[in-house]
């Protein structure tokens, strides 16, 4: 478990760093795949198998293929490289390191267990809420589907996610039409 976590976490972090460092667009896409794929592995380890599969399907199989497609369509040379100036890189790297240090300090400074018990106490629950993963950890499919339909067997007080789900679907339709409109082939002499 911890070995797998270490491998996936290292791959995710190193992939992300390599995305920043590499200059060639195709390599950036490759490292992004490594990073996002290992993040999906982390999700599997965190008992979120549906989210992990969605990450693989939508991000790696969909979005990244789209991105590489974009790289191919907009490449003016064989390997597109747009250099950033060294000064910019150094400044951005320094700021990034500072920011990383800040986030690390914050994350490791918080007492998560204490916060959890405090939150539970404030909500009037002495014991932790019945979790969705009592016996079948990682079996998140049915609860997730029911939650998206507005039913929450695991926590009755929660209203569910039917409205956000519908909004997201309408949003996707709008995006579909909008993207098709934006990227349509413009014919010369059409007036525009």
């Amino acid at each position: 478990m911890s070995i797998l976590f270490t491998i996936f976490a290292l791959a995710a972090c190193l992939g992300a760093v390599a995305v920043v460092i590499s200059q060639s667009m195709a390599r950036m896409a490759f490292w992004l795949v490594v990073s996002l794929g290992s993040t999906a592995g982390l999700f599997f380890l965190a008992d979120a198998d549906f989210v992990a599969a969605a990450q693989l399907l939508i991000y790696v199989g969909g979005t990244l293929v789209l991105l590489v497609f974009g790289v191919m369509l907009t490449a003016s040379g064989p390997y597109l490289k747009i250099q950033t100036s060294p000064a910019e890189t150094v400044v951005a790297g320094l700021i990034g390191l500072l920011f990383l240090f800040m986030v690390f300090a914050t994350v490791s400074g918080v007492d998560w267990e204490g916060t959890k018990t405090k939150m539970l106490a404030e909500n009037g629950q002495s014991t932790p809420t019945e979790k969705f993963d009592d016996q079948s950890e990682g079996d998140t499919l049915r609860p997730l589907g029911l939650a998206l339909l507005g039913v929450r067997p695991d926590s009755p007080n929660s209203p569910g996610y039917l409205l956000p789900f519908e909004i997201a679907s309408v949003h996707l339709l709008v995006v579909l039409i909008g993207a098709a409109y934006l990227a349509r082939a413009k014919r010369r002499g059409d007036g525009s």
Binding site: A9, A12, C13, A16, V17, V19, V20, M25, M28, S35, T39, L42, L67, G70, V71, T74, L80, I82, Q83, T84, E88, T89, A92, G93, I95, G96, F99, L100, V103, F104, V107, S108
Partner: peptide, 22 residues
């Protein structure tokens, strides 16, 4: 911490890349 590394890398990537897709 893993999330933080990804986040910071993304921010730096957004700030430094001049390629739109980057």
């Amino acid at each position: 911490l893993v999330g933080a590394v990804l986040f910071v890398c993304g921010v730096v990537c957004m700030a430094t890349k001049r390629n739109g897709i980057g």
